[in-house]
Simulated scan of single mutants.
Amino acid sequence: MTTEQRGVESSAGTAVQGLPPDARRHALARFVEERTTAKLEAMAETFGVSIMTIHRDLDQLTKDGRLERIRGGARAIPRRFAERDVRLRRHMNSAQKDLLARTAAGLIPAGAIVCLDDSTTVGAMGRYIADRQPSTVFTHSLGLMGAVAQHPAIALVGLGGQYYSETDSFLGTVVVDQVRRIAADVVFVSTTALKNGALFHPDAEAALTKKAIIEVAERKVLLADTSKFESNGLYHVVDLEVFDDIVVEADLPAPHRARLERLGLTIHTAPAP
Rank of each mutant, 00 (worst) to 15 (best):
H268Q: 06
H26S: 14
T266C: 01
F81K: 15
L144G: 10
R30P: 09
G123V: 01
H201A: 12
T139A: 10
V114C: 03
A155F: 03
E230T: 04
D118N: 13
R25Q: 13
R219F: 01
I129A: 05
D22L: 13
D22I: 13
M92R: 15
V238E: 15
V237L: 07
A183K: 03
A74N: 10
L67D: 10
A12F: 14
L208Y: 11
I154G: 04
R219C: 05
A82T: 05
A44C: 11
I108W: 04
F138P: 06
L199W: 15
L67N: 08
A155S: 13
V157Y: 03
L99F: 09
D131G: 14
A42C: 06
S227C: 06
H236D: 02
L107T: 11
L107Y: 07
R25H: 07
E83P: 00
H91E: 11
P202T: 03
R71T: 04
H256G: 06
L263H: 10
V176C: 04
Q133E: 13
R262Y: 03
V247I: 15
K97L: 02
V221L: 05
L240R: 02
G172I: 08
L144E: 06
D244H: 06
R66V: 05
R127T: 11
A44Q: 09
R30S: 15
G7S: 07
L116K: 02
S94N: 09
P152A: 10
A270S: 10
F31R: 15
T14S: 07
R71N: 03
N196L: 05
G111T: 08
C115P: 01
I182E: 08
G123L: 03
L234C: 01
G123R: 13
T269K: 12
D177Y: 06
A38G: 10
R30H: 11
A153H: 12
S227V: 05
P134V: 08
T14K: 15
A212Y: 15
R84S: 14
A207E: 09
I51F: 09
Q96C: 08
V247D: 01
A101I: 01
G72R: 04
Y164N: 13
D98G: 04
L263S: 14
I70N: 11
T167R: 01
F188P: 00
S11R: 12
G73H: 04
V176W: 07
E241H: 10
G13S: 05
G106C: 12
V176S: 06
A147G: 00
P78I: 04
A124W: 02
